[in-house]
Amino acid sequence: MWNRFHILVEVPPKCDQRLDDSALIERLSVIYSKEYVAMVSEHLAMLSSTTNKQGREAYHKLRESYTRRMWDLGLFMKTLKQRFCHCSAQTLRSAVFSSENWTLECAV
């Protein structure tokens, strides 16, 4: 059983310019579903139009929840491992419960 993997990643230097909302949404669309990206886009648009302090803070907090992971290899690897483990667990669970004779099947 393989329990290791190798990955070659290039992390570009952090840019000094702030990403605008459209660039952020474009980047999110690479890793998230269309429905999720649409929800985030609507939420950002709603929060960006607010004028009160709480709305502005919520807007910046939402953006920060996505942009803080950019240019950080440690957070990238953490997310990658979590998603891989989650997908493996889902595959294993479905293999166990879909088996008619209750034997464990492995998906390789």
Results as ranks from 00 to 15, higher is better:
Leu75Pro: 02
Thr67Ala: 00
Met77Val: 14
Thr50Gln: 13
Ser98Leu: 10
Gly74Val: 03
Arg56Pro: 00
Ile25Thr: 04
Glu64Phe: 10
Asp21Cys: 06
Ala58Arg: 00
Cys85Pro: 01
Ser88Tyr: 14
Arg18Asp: 13
Ser49Thr: 11
Arg83Asp: 10
Leu80Lys: 11
Tyr66Ile: 00
Glu35Arg: 11
Ala45Ser: 09
Leu8Val: 12
Ser48Val: 01
Met39Asp: 15
Gln82Phe: 07
Arg27Lys: 15
Arg56Phe: 00
Leu44Gly: 01
Ile31Pro: 04
Glu64Trp: 07
Lys61Arg: 06
Tyr32Val: 04
Tyr32Met: 10
His86Leu: 13
Gln90Arg: 12
Asp20Phe: 03
Arg68Phe: 02
Gln17Ser: 12
Lys14Asn: 09
Ser94Gln: 14
Asp20Gln: 08
Thr79His: 08
Ala45Phe: 08
Lys34Cys: 07
Thr91Ser: 13
Ser41Arg: 15
Ser48Lys: 06
Leu92Ala: 15
Val30Thr: 07
Lys78Asn: 08
Trp71His: 10
Cys85Leu: 13
Thr79Asn: 11
Arg18Cys: 06
Val40Phe: 05
Ala89His: 12
Arg69Gln: 07
Ser22Pro: 03
Thr79Glu: 15
Val30Ala: 08
Leu47Met: 02
Leu80Trp: 05
Ala23Gly: 09
Glu42Gly: 15
Arg18His: 10
Ala23Pro: 01
Met39Val: 03
Gln54Phe: 02
Leu73Lys: 03
Pro13Cys: 05
Glu26Trp: 05
His60Ile: 02
Met39Ser: 15
Val40Ser: 01
Ser94Ala: 15
Leu73Gln: 03
Tyr36Ser: 14
Leu75Asp: 06
Ser22Thr: 08
Glu64Val: 03
Arg56Val: 10
Gln90Ser: 09
Val96Thr: 10
Thr79Cys: 04
Arg93Ile: 07
Lys61Ala: 11
Ala23Phe: 00
Arg18Leu: 12
Gln90Leu: 13
Ser33Thr: 13
Thr79Leu: 07
Gln54Leu: 05
Cys87Asp: 10
Ser48Met: 02
Arg27Asp: 04
Arg69Thr: 05
Leu8Ala: 12
Arg83Ser: 09
Asp72Ser: 13
Arg18Ala: 10
Glu57Trp: 01
Gln82Met: 09
Val30Glu: 11
Ser88Arg: 12
His6Gln: 14
Lys81Thr: 08
Ala45Lys: 15
Ser49Met: 06
Asp16Ala: 07
Arg83Gly: 05
Gly74Arg: 04
Arg69Glu: 08
Lys53Glu: 14
Phe76Cys: 03
Ala89Gln: 13
Phe76Met: 04
His60Ser: 10
Ser65Trp: 00
Pro13His: 09
Met77Asn: 05
Thr91Arg: 09
Tyr66Gln: 03
Tyr32Glu: 06
Ser49Phe: 04
Leu19Glu: 04
Gln54Lys: 06
Asn52Cys: 06
Leu62Thr: 02
Arg93Val: 11
Gln54Asp: 11
Lys81Ala: 09
Met70Ile: 06
Arg63Cys: 04
Asn52Met: 04
Leu47Arg: 03
Phe76Asn: 00
Ser65Asn: 03
Ser88Pro: 02
Cys85Ile: 14
Ala45Gln: 12
Thr67Met: 05
Glu42His: 07
Leu75Arg: 11
Ala45Tyr: 10
Leu92His: 11
Ser48Pro: 08
Leu19Trp: 05
Met70Lys: 00
Leu75Thr: 02
Lys81Pro: 04
